[in-house]
């Protein structure tokens, strides 16, 4: 399997995805039959209110979770039937994650938070390269607690892209940030998508962000509502927040 597929090749193919899980004493129907194709190199925004099943969908695509029913393929890899070890290898080689709350390891510096991923990758950038990609070359040896929220999120992005992943999955990457900082983070994502050709999925409930996507997929109540293809993509700084 190639690391980067030809443009317009289908990267992910999902059919009839259903997910039910228990939360304490409550049953949650997170996905109710989702069909979806994602193409190589595109930037997709998954838009929907909280509880619409966006995160669940993203987790399944990233091999962090398995659906209750339905099929997902990453290229030729069947993510539903894959064994635990195969999923681990899949995540290690192809997927980069960015989370809403950054989820940096507090006991490691910015450089080390990136290194923890590059150390297990085949052909990574150096942590320094990855951090200069997000303009943090001056804050290499700062601990997360010494960084602002925007800086932490940029470290998280550096960590996600340092291994040159085929897909970048971002779960509300600006959810915890103010608009100025959020736009900086989105600029970084846009640049990575453009320069590295990384297929990028961004989850948000902020409709303003949708303008920077190639495609916008609306999700509500566990189902896909509509899919809109943007004719022209807006630059992040032009977004109305």
């Amino acid at each position: 399997m190639n690391r980067h597929n030809a443009p317009d090749a289908t990267v992910f193919k999902a059919r009839g995805l259903t997910k039910v899980y228990r939360m304490g004493e409550v049953q949650v129907h997170a996905l109710r039959g989702v069909d979806l194709d994602l193409y190589s190199g595109e930037l997709v925004v998954l838009l929907g209110p909280s509880g619409s099943g966006k995160s669940t969908l993203l987790n399944i695509l990233g091999g962090l979770d398995t659906p209750t029913d339905g099929q997902v393929f990453y290229g030729g890899l069947d993510l539903v039937r894959a064994r635990e070890a195969d999923l681990t290898r899949f995540r290690r080689r192809f997927v980069g994650f960015v989370f809403q709350f950054y989820n940096l390891i507090p006991s490691l510096t910015a450089r080390e938070n990136v290194a923890i991923v590059t150390e297990i990758s085949d052909d990574p950038m150096t942590p320094e390269e990855a951090l200069s990609l997000v303009n943090l070359q001056d804050r290499l040896d700062h601990f997360p607690s010494q960084l602002s929220g925007g800086e932490q999120q940029r470290v998280a992005i550096a960590r996600a892209v340092a291994k040159r992943p085929a897909v970048l999955l971002c779960d509300e990457p600006t959810g915890a940030l103010d608009s100025t900082t959020g736009i900086k983070v989105l600029e970084v994502l846009e640049r990575i998508n453009r320069e590295l050709g990384t297929t990028t999925v961004v989850i948000t409930h902020n409709a303003g962000i949708a303008a920077m996507a190639d495609r916008v997929i609306h999700l509500s109540d566990g189902r896909i509502g509509q899919i809109i293809k943007n004719q022209t993509k807006a630059a992040p700084r032009e977004l109305s927040w």
Binding site: A85, R91, V95, F99, F101, I116, I120
Partner: peptide
């Protein structure tokens, strides 16, 4: 919990 999740998300094996 979350640190464990991140490690696993980035491909650390169980």
């Amino acid at each position: 919990r979350e640190q464990i999740a991140v490690l696993k998300a980035f491909g650390y094996a169980n």
